[in-house]
Amino acid sequence: MDRLADMKEGLHKSKSGLIRALVKTDNGRITDVIISGDYILTPERCIDELEKALIGTEACREKIFGTLKRFYEQNKFQSPQTYPEDFTEALMKAINA
């Protein structure tokens, strides 16, 4: 099955690069997500963990921002000049596409 076929896309430029979010929702919740792009976040496996953390989140700005903020607080990584607000923006653009 083509994973990308039923995902919606949102683009947002953070100061470290482009965030290309792809999202699939079902019953108002995120069921699949890809946070791709050329932004900087290290160690990179945290990007995979972030995607995993977003699964099941209600597809609204407040809940998505909450998940991202918690992820930033609870995990040790660096994402210079890219913030939870940037990921939220890309994800919301995808959800509303």
Partner: peptide, 22 residues
């Protein structure tokens, strides 16, 4: 890795050390 990897939301290479760590 996003479309032909074995997993959906965790796309690291299955046999790679970073996947084992993850």
């Amino acid at each position: 890795r996003y479309t032909r990897g074995r997993t959906r939301s965790c796309g690291a290479y299955p046999q790679s050390p970073e996947q084992a760590e993850f």
